[in-house]
Amino acid sequence: MILTAALLSYLAITTLNILAAKLDPTTLTAGLLCLAAIFTIQLRHSQPGANRAPLWQRLTTLGTQALLTYLPIVVFHAEWGAMAGFLAGSLLLLLPSKVAWVAYGAVGLSMLVPPALDGRPALDSVYLCQSTLLTGLVVYGLSRLADLVRILHETRDQLTRMAVTKERLRFARDLHDLLGYSLSAITLKSELIHRLVPTHPQRAMEEVHDVLAISRQSLADVRMVASGLLDMSLEEELTSALSLLGTAGLEVHADIRLGTMNQQVDTVLAAVLREAITNLLRHSKASRCEITAVREDGRIRLSVANDGVDPTYRDPSPHSGSGLGNLSMRLNAVSGELTTTRGPDGTFLLLANAPVAPSRHPPDTEDDVLSSQEPAA
């Protein structure tokens, strides 16, 4: 609206100049029609994306505007000069930068001629040239400003949608990492309780207490995920994983040598361990598991290896297979990396590396991570 108001103001000035010339009705009507045509063409040139129109269309409308700008000068002389500013602005809007600025300057200089032909002082020629160039800059600036405001609003909407999508992905990843592990543990212990009830009721009661504790912790974790305040500890997850694997009857070997680390890295590696143990319990027939968590040269190396991967297994769930992709994205956020290796003898190794403290600007390779997801093992 500001752009349209500015264009109408310039149009009104030229209209007043024409009316003051006291021309015959036919000439006056022709002049007003030319003004309306120039205004319509200028609105088209000032529209967002007008510079992306085919070249022949831009040259055609610019040529028409040039004719409507210069031909009436023969009749109206210097009073028509304000319309040359519209042409100068259109040239800046529609042509490539180098050509546009040269043409813009040429239009301004051409306005030195009409006052001179009328025998006016040189100061009038300078004034008309300067006002033409100024009008061109105003038209160009307001048109570009309107386009930038539109882009700003579109970008703000896109950023809002991206923020919502990012939060949904965070919530989904955290729920997957937390509940996958907890539900697997509850399922495993429930199966154990089912076997123990007839012969070892006291032991079954102890396992029931463990199931209740896991379920309460799962509820607390879900609430923390919803509030975005989830922090996890790798050492605590290691203790829980060793206990759970022992309950499942696996032979476990652990090498744990950890020191202090950044809380974000600690949480990410704890999530990696949870997913690794969840996958091991759900998708493998392992009898032995080796867990290594050591700090070397300012980096934390976490590896989980087992001997029970089934190469023919495919999870039929329509939402399966996102766990390792989620972990890769988490590790990428702390400048870490995740690799998985399948051995020909049925072994599977998950290896995570991350710095003790993440860099401020980790590489953004989320697309690569998503495109290289492997099925959970």
Rank of each mutant, 00 (worst) to 15 (best):
Glu207Leu: 13
Tyr140Ile: 01
His194Leu: 15
Met224Glu: 08
Ala106Asp: 12
Tyr104Ala: 07
Leu183Gly: 13
Ser110Asp: 04
Tyr104Arg: 01
Val138Ser: 09
Leu178Met: 14
Gly180Gln: 06
Ser110Phe: 11
Met162Glu: 15
Leu212Thr: 07
Asp210Ser: 07
Asp177Ser: 14
Val102Asp: 04
Leu178Cys: 15
Leu123Val: 04
Val211Gly: 03
Leu175Cys: 08
Val211Gln: 03
Leu152Phe: 08
Asp124Ala: 12
Thr187Trp: 03
Glu206Met: 02
Arg144Val: 12
Arg203Cys: 05
Pro114Val: 06
Leu128His: 03
Leu188Cys: 09
His209Gly: 01
Glu154Ser: 12
Phe171Gly: 00
Val222Pro: 00
Leu134Thr: 13
Ala106Lys: 05
Gly105Met: 08
Leu112Pro: 08
Gly105Ser: 10
Ala116Val: 13
Cys129Pro: 00
Met205Ile: 06
Asp210Pro: 00
Leu219His: 11
His200Asn: 11
Arg170Phe: 10
Ala220Trp: 00
Thr155Cys: 02
Ser110Leu: 14
Ala172Lys: 06
Gln202Pro: 02
Leu192Ser: 09
Leu169Cys: 02
Ala163His: 09
Glu191Gln: 15
Glu154Thr: 06
Arg223Thr: 07
Ser182Ile: 05
Gly105Phe: 05
Tyr140Ala: 08
Thr199His: 15
Ala116Gly: 01
Glu207Gly: 02
Pro201Val: 13
Ala106His: 02
Gly119Met: 02
His194Ser: 14
Thr132Ser: 12
Leu128Glu: 11
Met224Lys: 14
Thr135Pro: 05
Gln158Trp: 04
Gly119Glu: 10
